[in-house]
Nucleic acid binder design. Sequence first.
RNA 1: CGGGGCGUAGCGCAGCCCGGUAGCGCGCCUGCUUUGGGAGCAGGAUGUCGGAGGUUCAAAUCCUCUCGCCCCGACCA
Length: 573
Amino acid sequence: MRTSQMLIPTLRDDPGEAETVSHRLMLRAGMIRKVAAGVYTYLPLGLRVLRKVEGIVREEMNRAGAQELLMPIASPAELWRETGRWDFYGKELFRFKDRHERDFCLGPTHEEVITDLIRREVRSYRQLPLNCYQIQTKFRDEIRPRFGLMRGREFIMKDAYSFDKDEEGAKLSYQKMYDAYQRIFARCGLTFRAVEADTGLIGGSSSHEFMVLAETGEETIVYADGGTYAANVERAEVLPPAEASTEPLRPLRKVATPGARTVAEVCAFLNVSPQQLVKTLLYKTPKEIVAVLIRGDHEANEVKLKKLLGVTDLELADPETVAKTTGAPVGFAGPIGLKNVRILADQSVAVMRNLVAGGNEANHHYVDANKDRDFAGVQVADLRNALVGDVSPRGDGRLKIAKGIEVGHVFMLGTKYSKAMGSAFLDPQGQERLAVMGCYGIGVSRTAAAAIEQNHDAKGIIWPVPIAPFHVHLLPLSQSDAVQKQAKILYDQLGQAGIEVLWDDRDERAGVKFNDADLIGAPLHLVIGEKGLAQGQVELKARRTGTVTKLPPAEVPVTVKTRLSDKDPATGS
RNA sequence: CGGGGCGUAGCGCAGCCCGGUAGCGCGCCUGCUUUGGGAGCAGGAUGUCGGAGGUUCAAAUCCUCUCGCCCCGACCA
């Protein structure tokens, strides 16, 4: 393609609206433009990258035995009412009415639609297993869209749904997808990690998220430094403490702690460490108010808490509720004397002795409090976030923490949807059985953004070869006949060799072309200059390393092919 | 939804406090020169100052309402 014939509106300055690297660079490189919050137009360059990612996804899905279909973006409320998700999904579901006042939504995911199809069309075990996927625009009315394509309200997703006749088959389908995902993200040139994950709104029995490792990631993951365990921190299990305190119990005292509300303030005032302190968090669920005891230096894990309580709605209680429940303002809640409230404690709290806790009275705390002696009826569970240095729950070392971008998520669904919607088939015995399902998502547009987060420098994007919008950026530096002719020859030769070339045929200065090329980030830059050409040489530059190779034009096609092959470190593929 | 901030030329911003009829840099157009890392000179075009209402002789500037966007948090395959 010739630059002069493509819409590639690069920007010199960083747009004010973008903070994140990928968002900024995609805008500056002329790949995307915003239409509304979280809604973007993909310009030709951006679309080419999406198509590359889609191509890899499609190949690997097909290879794994899945078949492509395409479902509608709009779906009727009735289907969503069958599974209860019309109410359950909440505000994130983009809803609208047609002219007959019938409720519809824009699909955020398609379990209902696919299950509706399969229950109609699949009646025999002979038709199973089945795995159908689509690559499609999805809509989620995110509370806060951000970071460009990273968290849009409209985005492109590959979603696959497997149907099996039994649990065993479903596990196999799941494993196939898991393996396919490994290949997909590896082929995209990403550094990533599969981690155990929570199943959230989709539901099901177990799941793994595929995380692209990046500082800017919105997810926190933990992994064992000595083995294979890795999990989203939402999900990561924490082992019970290895040893309990053996300190002799001291008598309980109530002391004045004027104005000391936060852990830091109380610790400073009483001259104790956060490890000796217990914070009492009051949570509100639709059913009840619960008090949660967490050690001062730990963080409560609301996902674990929700699971334990069997609720999906959970929030910290407002100050009035706290006051009404504890008889004290926020900052002085404690387990001692707390009435009419279920009390939960994290495992680490259960082994503490002589702890400090709120006094349920303004400006007072208890010192040397002890479970069972001073407060009882406490349910102990794993309720905190895992921390750096915790022992891995699989015993393979200690935990470390990293940030990740969730680009894929595989779920074992079981019969949640087939049961709700009656997707059944007849087994060889003529018995009716429910399909066992799995679902598997990949954020295609997010993957493109994640690739930039992981592959860039101060000058711009550095595309991994397999998803680069172009392989070679051809930069003739002069409008002279000799240079232009040589450019045309190389452009044609490379094109015939199946290499995608972006030819900067603009009458711009060298600096402008170099800077745009660095910004756009094709893996190889082919520079044709007047002087070099007079000596029979052109230059091939690796975007990632900046390494320049001078070579005669005749050698370009072969050299480029070699460089683009995935073994060459200079292109970083 | 809570907190913070921003809407002025295609992009980045100043002007607003203290009202007097809009400016800077980059980009864009024309010409000449230049031509290996965002050229120089000369000339030129471009704004419902997010929108509506109000105050005033006069509003980008003050007041009210409203819409949009960004950041932090809560939330989320």
